[in-house]
Design a protein around this nucleic acid. Sequence first.
DNA 1: TCATATACCGTAAAATTATTCGGTACTTGA
DNA 2: TCAAGTACCGAATAATTTTACGGTATATGA
Lengths: 136, 136
Amino acid sequence: MALCLGREIKRIFELMAYEKKIPVDLDCPLRLTMSLIESKWKSCILDELRDGRAQRPSEIHKCLPEAAPRVLDIQLREMVEDGLVVKTIYPELPPRSEYRITDLGLSLIPIIDMMLKWGEEHFEVFEKKYGGRTKE
Amino acid sequence: MALCLGREIKRIFELMAYEKKIPVDLDCPLRLTMSLIESKWKSCILDELRDGRAQRPSEIHKCLPEAAPRVLDIQLREMVEDGLVVKTIYPELPPRSEYRITDLGLSLIPIIDMMLKWGEEHFEVFEKKYGGRTKE
DNA sequence: TCATATACCGTAAAATTATTCGGTACTTGA
DNA sequence: TCAAGTACCGAATAATTTTACGGTATATGA
């Protein structure tokens, strides 16, 4: 019982620390922007939502099948906190919710576009360079 | 003795896997570009070397004092492998080496610039939003 | 009735990334 | 002689991120 209580207290402190932690990097403007999108799937999520259409979690997952649903869930929650997307929850059963890109999120799309274009232009070079290697 | 050998063999296999592993993400153009610069300090290193001047590791570290020299060392080596920078080693004592941005690295600068600009434009919003929180 | 789908969450493990520390070898300046 | 600087590397640890798995609750269609 005492041990469980200790674990609970530890957990509460972790939660408090988590709540208080700065989720972005305010050290410099470049790091700020990077820290908002550098997680593996965030740039892809922004690209998915770019047309302004609200999408359900399962739709987003269908477009990014390589990402585990739990990861998308977590990264979408962070993006909501950062103000890049908004979430609408419909009190229905079975449950339904939707994510829509915000103006702040849209303002990142030109950057996403440039990265997309750069990647397309240099894809063959890197495929030739690293294509022979195993993925993992 | 047998245990040590086992560990050595494991290490060799790890090294072989490491050598063969694709260091970038070829799943999609966006992920490719991101994977080249998403490590914490790579975008800052590119920004540091943008003027085309060759810089010594210690100079780069002076400009990015928050990054541990070992980390810069590793990330610079990866950037050399990816072709974003080149390294020149002078066979002198005490040792001297220099890193210079390549044309491929320079082609990423417009993206870095947009992120820099975006970060400057939205800095106050995020500082107001998260400024009250502790950093760690 | 049973599988499927929906969104979500907790836990734990795996994988990756970042950091610290100590050591090499040599020079220069105090 | 001793500290400091120079570049670099190995090893271990810390921190973070990503993933897998199982469970909640309810509806639908076979």
